[in-house]
Design a protein around this nucleic acid. Sequence first.
RNA 1: GGGCGUGUAGCUCAGUUGGUUAGAGCGCGUCGCUGAUAACGACGAGGUCCCAGAUUCGAGUUCUGGCACGCCCA
Length: 1118
Amino acid sequence: MFARIENNVSFPKLEQDVLQFWREQNIYAKSLERRQGAESFVFFEGPPTANGMPHPGHCLTRAIKDLFPRYQTMRGKLCTRKAGWDTHGLPVEVEVCKELGIHSKEEIEAYGVEPFIQLCQRSVWRYMQEWERLTERLGFWIKLDEAYVTYHQSYVESVWWSLKQLFDRGLLYQGHKIVWWWAQGGTALSSGEVGQGYKKVADPSVFVLFPLLDTPNTALLVWTTTPWTLPSNQFAAVNPDLEYATVYDALIDRRLIMAKDLVEVISAKIKRELNIESICRGQDLIGKRYRPPFDYYYKTLGEKTGKLRDGGEQHIAWRIAPADFVTTDSGSGAVHEAPAFGEVDFELLQSEQARFVEGQGPELICGVGPNGKFVPEISDFAGKWIKDADKLIVRQLKDKGLLYYQEQYLHDYPFCWRADNDPLIQYPRKSWFIRTTAFRDKMLENNRLIQWFPEHIRDGRFGNFLESNVDWALSRERYWGTPLPIWVCDSSGKMEAIASYAELLDKPGVAGTEVWEAAKQANPDLVDDLKVHKPYIDHITYDSPFVPGARMRRVSEVIDCWYDSGAMPFAQWGYPQSGSEVFQTQFPADFISEALDQTRGWFYSLVAISTMLFEDKPFPRPFRNCIVLGLMLGEDGQKMSKSKRNYREPNEIFDRYGADALRWYFYAKQPPWTEIRYREQTIKDSIPEFILRLWNVFSFFVNYAISDGFDPAKELRGNLYDLTHAELRSAPSCRPTTERGEIDRWILSELNRLAADVTARMDAYDSYGACQRINDFVDGLSNWYVRRNRERFWSPDKESADKLDAYWTLYECLLTLSKIIAPFVPFISETIWRRLTCDLADRVAESVHLTDFPAADPAEIDSTLSEQMELIREIASLGRAARMEAKLKVRQPLTRVTVALNSKQHLSWLQAHDAILRDELNVKAVKFIADAGEYVTYQVLPNFKVLGPKVGKLLPALKSKLGETKGSDLLIALQQQGHVNVAVDGQTIRLEPEEIQVRMTPKPGWMAAQGHSCVVVLATELTTELIEEGIARDIIRSIQDTRKKLALDYTDRIRVYLASDVEEIQRAVAHWADYIKGETLADTLEWASIESPEKVTCEVGDYTIDLLVEKSLQAQRV
RNA sequence: GGGCGUGUAGCUCAGUUGGUUAGAGCGCGUCGCUGAUAACGACGAGGUCCCAGAUUCGAGUUCUGGCACGCCCA
């Protein structure tokens, strides 16, 4: 027998019980065992960093990540889910620095790299427990105890192996990267740090003359805001698509070239007329040589030329180059290029280099040292701090007659966030790169095969990013990260890559391992994985294979931690040192999901690495389907922020509303890729809207089943497991669907349609659509099936086939539904399943998560019945609307409603089911009519979708023509002839029945409501009899209300005393006494004068009546 | 400055290939039910679909140009 449902259900409490059950019975492990040998559904976990508290955004990611693996597991796939943790990188170092109260690299070095990385290693687990607790509490099933960890030796070695592949294939190279550089601190800053330090400052803005070599007395007018970069000038850039003017400046007797659109602006600045002499396109200026303002480099390299790739020869520098970033927003339309001090400028250098034969093109010129002071070659300013040199440089320009105009320029410029008087400069640093550009087309090709949700990511954000791919700057001059596994010969500079620690130890003459050994001896608790990290790994050297007597030493850098996470498809298994077999079966992933910010992060690193390493695989894209989650905002629509407290902590949400409420909110309130506003109220709402509604149906079933002794366990026979329809049929009293009543067949049909629809949508990764269908079904189950069938459950005949049908039908609905919703709301579904099967515990799946996802049985689906039921629900709804309009409450019986139908399709079915409408609308009769000319006017409209393509421009004319014709005449003609001819603009159009649509409008004077497929008309006249019956029902309602206020049990019998002088009421009571007594379980119904303080006064129609209700003694004896 | 996205009811959001009454939930209002009861149901009001042009017989939906907001990159 089922256990009674407690009155005050607490979902968080239920969830705790479920969690305990899952833990004790290892349900997750069993769900995997059950699928051993089955086809895989591969899921990759994008590793989070556990050095910060998890917040609601992480809950969303983890909820989505849980949904599809659970679903696919129930669908029969084997979906192992290996957790992972991202542990390297700058954020970890920053956290540790904060604790130590230090900032710069010097301070880290002073503190000691060895203790520093030991702190880093411990710091990454700081919030581990919170993460694990949240993961479990949310119901995210993943193997936490087998998690991959990016600092583990096996993981690092996998990464090394992959880098060695790239190195050996010539894809890993050293080059320059322009970084934001803090000269005083001697370190590069991350973009996040740079973003923190912008200030508004005034810098010099100078217009400088670059005299052209081959055009006499003519100079290019060049603009810059950083005079200190002029000595390092290599090019001048113009936009080839802009128009440039040659103007004559009489005052200095020179011709100047500048953007045509800026002539006026500049003329206004210098306050004199500039006459345009000629105009050309920027394209025509490309290649012209000029003399730079300073000749520190020009004097040796100025005449140097190099061979071009496509033949010919050209000067390597100091000529005009094309650049589309040049605009006419400010300046002169020509820009000075010092590639050392700007990223776009550096790119320009690279594209120039690319035009030359290897080794013949321009080299980077950098006249400033890492300390921000000029190098000795810049003899006039050597040793000067760059900003201090600005003035001197401008003065020199003036002396040389090259300064055309100078002003102050107000703009935002980044400063160091730790020392806010130190300006940052863009500065070239040696860096390691991966030649990803060589794989651009392959990556694009792979990208095209990925299913992105939403779709626009593919050609939008991600596709664009790939299109404009630049080589991956891999190295970081930091401490806590995967060391770059490259050793350099200290004599020849030749290099090789190492794939594992063992390989390193096998090298001839290896030395330096004692540093690690000593550390381990001093502190045996030291994690062994640290031996492949800085500083220990840096001490390991070996004999150079290139130069006898020389040694190989590791380069100092670590790598970008995005490379770590992008390597997870193989590194999580330690491949290829171990895990080859499992890697083969677990690549690529069927499904991954992260938020939008991972587009250029994890999604890119996965695609890039897999494309480069697994070219030979038939399927080198690392994942097939990817849901890109929207960003989550706080309650106020702003970014979530701890300090603003604009969101409630996940743990509090779990305690107040439960994990299911949160999950349902994530899945059912919006598609996952939209921006989500995290609102506590909306999370709370998912309880009454869905979870509680479902629970009420379940509780209704259980409580009645208990009182009626309906006990499936006693009847079910044979092999049971899933309690599918077929298994339920083993019970003798469980009749075939075809033998059950129509409403049972209807809800079972809906149930099977639901299973089919949810399967289709989930297979297409449309979780939002799936939830909408589930919601619709639960609504129909609760507000139509249960409501329409309550009386069947109350029926006193416990053995009647009809009553048993009702029980079996509702039982099946709840069982199947619990399986369908299991991936979404795993807790309540588990509770419902287990309580519905409590007496079958050893004969069926112990957990709903160990069942198969319900398969729809097409034989159970009756789509005609669905349509019919929908229609009758629409009619009932329209009838209520009409009553509302007429201010006739449902308690007042009426003689008749008339339903005018658009189509006769379901007429006979409706006629056979008028009892439902009589009951729902409280009327004595329902009349269906096809020709409702008496009540409505017909308006005939073209069927636009069909006629649009057929008649095109005539459509508006046809529409008004149809409007002029009397609708009912047209319809009759159509019915009689099968078609109708309409003359429009001199043409005759033959209309078929399906080419028109009919709209009915109630005629004035009737109480009617109009829907899509019918009009419902109310007969509003009231007879004495109807009024009396209405009064009786009012009285019943009042008595029931009083019963409730007296807290009577629903089986208690009562005595009722009434007092009223109104004749109508007295007549009504006399007439309907038995009915009233029956409905209210009253033994007696007497007129009396009531003096008791218990007396209640009720409104009945236009009058009032006094009532006294007493519990009947007789009843107490029963 | 560039790329991408978003803009629909008081709020949160749907709206599939263009088709003529633009939907849901919450909130609000009115009413009902009282044997699912610390529940439940019905009905209603509420919309210049950001703006302006264009394409089309027809645009919330397609195109162009704005505006606002967000994210990423510079």
